[in-house]
Design a protein around this nucleic acid. Structure first.
Lengths: 202, 202
DNA sequence: TAGTGTTGTAAGCACACGTTTACATACACC
DNA sequence: GGTGTATGTAAACGTGTGCTTACAACACTA
């Protein structure tokens, strides 16, 4: 393989997509302009329309790509005991730039589009359910209060992603994976550990 | 006191402020236009500039007002044991429209303005610190890991506010104060309860 | 009632937005 | 080399934005 082609639509498309993911996650959909994205990607504005149809189309592509990359880096099957660390790894790990936090941050910005909205809700919902299901024997039906607790755990992850993306905020922005894992593991066992009410140590 | 004046700048100002609080919290700063706000408040666009100087000024007024109203409805001095319920009350209580969730939702939307940005971060920071301080004897200095845990708790509150504002999402949107209090109390004692590492029951 | 400051309105300004168009250039193939 | 298509560029379009201006309607006091 020789020099990279000076004109390479695949590369340009990918560059636009990656830049858009970063900007949408950092600044939100409405606050990000297509010219911002194009300039930062070193491309022309018109190419966004060409490759993604519209700003909306670009955003949906970002959502899809982010969901894919988190599916990729996801630990195959985590037990309840490892869930806290798994979330912490998603937050602080090497893949954090294109991983869990990005999906979460993208997921909290309503795009205005009906279809993207439903996809967003479905994604969030299934996350919460899968985490809550770890507290049950495989295949057991998910009771409503555990579903709620799964969503509170999801809320924690979402909030941590938001706060970690806030520069100048205290320790949480600079916390290591281990430090996060400490706190998050406690939250996981408090929410999904056996027995209702205050956690009882086995 | 006689009939209300047909022209009442105080009333108009308040109307604009309340509408802005609702819209900024629901749609975010960038996605909300001053014409949206003025129309919904039944006022003229120019009055926003007159009363608040600019859209930015209006947003800062919203932040301040929201911080005030949560200070008002806040339980005077909560102990660590009551913190979970106190947060749940803030989330689900009668004041939820103008209470905790609103401050949190306003706090997660960067406005683009430097000064508002600092106020936002200061608000978040002090929340986390006050909550974390409940785990210590009065006046004791706040160690860094507890500070972090306070911020994770804040993250949970923020995430719950976001998810509760997401229509169509599962149980968390419709959960009662009691149901939320159950889960949140567990999170509080897991994060701030005595002793590091996994919670040990006294 | 005449005068005066306050409150509200309508129109417009300058600019940034998303998108489209018309055109230039690099590449692949003959 | 010559030709057709893929790729990239520059400029413009229409619209919506935040904000200002010029003016009208009201409330109040003398």
């Amino acid at each position: 393989m020789g020099e990279p082609r000076r004109r390479d639509s695949a590369r340009t498309r990918k560059l636009l997509l990656e830049t858009a993911r970063r900007r949408f996650a950092r600044d939100g959909y409405a606050a990000t302009t297509v010219r911002d994205i194009a300039d930062e990607a070193g491309a022309n504005v018109a190419l966004i329309s060409r490759y993604f149809g519209s700003k909306e189309g670009l955003f949906e592509a970002c959502l899809a790509a982010a969901a894919d990359s988190v599916r990729g880096t996801q630990d195959g099957d985590v037990a309840l005991e490892g869930l806290g660390r798994s979330i912490a790894r998603g937050m602080a790990g090497v893949s954090s730039a294109h991983g869990l936090p990005e999906v979460l941050l993208l997921s909290l910005r309503p795009s205005g589009d009906e279809q993207a909205e439903r996809a967003r809700i479905r994604t969030l919902s299934s996350y919460a359910e899968r985490m809550a299901a770890l507290a049950l024997p495989e295949g057991a039906p998910l009771p409503d209060d555990l579903h709620l607790r799964g969503q509170v755990l999801l809320a924690t992850a979402l909030g941590v992603a938001v706060l970690r993306a806030t520069p100048g905020l205290g320790p949480i922005t600079s916390a290591t994976e281990d430090q996060l894992a400490d706190a998050l593991s406690d939250v996981v066992s408090a929410l999904l550990g056996r027995g209702p009410g205050p956690l009882t140590q086995p």
